[in-house]
Measured scan of single mutants.
Amino acid sequence: MDVFMKGLSKAKEGVVAAAEKTKQGVAEAAGKTKEGVLYVGSKTKEGVVHGVATVAEKTKEQVTNVGGAVVTGVTAVAQKTVEGAGSIAAATGFVKKDQLGKNEEGAPQEGILEDMPVDPDNEAYEMPSEEGYQDYEPEA
């Protein structure tokens, strides 16, 4: 019985440690998101679009440190934060509304985080759909 109880105690310690790591990862992701939003706020009209992409990228980098179902929630929060940063930029006159959601080359930025393969159960990952990809044929 002692062996059984000791095993359960060790398992509990492992769960607590994993929860603490997840909590730490979420806190880091939130900190990076805040950094990115402050970065966007300090940019001029020309830099705002690039700044919004930076927020998304920093958040995406930190999301990889967070495991399990938390990833889905962090990704949703990050996307809403990026959308909010863009709205703030438009409201303050840093950028025109028609410039939001495009990178410096004018290509749409939507789907940055949505296409990231995420499995809350950590069982399997699927690649994003290939609808947006084109076949590449090298020139002879």
Rank of each mutant, 00 (worst) to 15 (best):
M1W: 00
D2G: 00
V3P: 00
M5Q: 00
K6C: 02
K6P: 00
L8F: 02
K10N: 03
A11T: 04
K12E: 00
G14C: 12
V15K: 00
V16D: 01
A19Y: 15
T22G: 03
Q24N: 07
G25V: 14
E28R: 07
A29W: 13
A29S: 02
T33M: 15
K34R: 06
K34I: 08
E35P: 01
V37L: 15
Y39D: 01
Y39L: 11
Y39T: 04
V40Y: 07
K43L: 14
K43Q: 04
T44Y: 15
K45E: 00
E46D: 11
E46L: 03
E46N: 11
E46A: 12
G47H: 14
V49H: 14
H50S: 12
G51A: 12
T54G: 08
V55N: 00
V55D: 00
A56I: 14
T59H: 02
T59L: 05
E61A: 05
E61V: 07
E61G: 06
N65L: 08
N65P: 02
G67H: 08
G67A: 13
G68Q: 03
A69G: 06
A69C: 05
V70P: 01
T72D: 12
T72G: 11
T72L: 14
G73F: 06
V74C: 11
V74K: 01
T75G: 06
A76F: 15
V77P: 02
A78N: 01
Q79K: 10
K80E: 02
T81L: 11
T81C: 09
V82S: 04
G84S: 11
G86D: 04
G86S: 12
S87A: 12
A89L: 14
A91M: 13
T92R: 06
G93V: 06
K96F: 15
K97M: 08
K97A: 10
K97H: 09
D98E: 11
D98H: 09
L100V: 12
N103H: 07
N103G: 06
E104N: 06
G106K: 07
E110K: 05
E110L: 13
I112S: 09
L113H: 11
D115Q: 08
P117M: 07
D119E: 11
P120L: 09
N122F: 10
E123K: 08
A124L: 04
E126R: 10
E126G: 12
M127K: 10
P128I: 11
E130T: 05
E130V: 15
E131T: 10
G132F: 12
Y133D: 12
Y133K: 03
Y133C: 08
Y133I: 02
Q134P: 12
Y136H: 08
Y136G: 06
Y136R: 06
E137K: 04
E139C: 02
E139Q: 05
A140D: 13
A140G: 13
A140P: 07
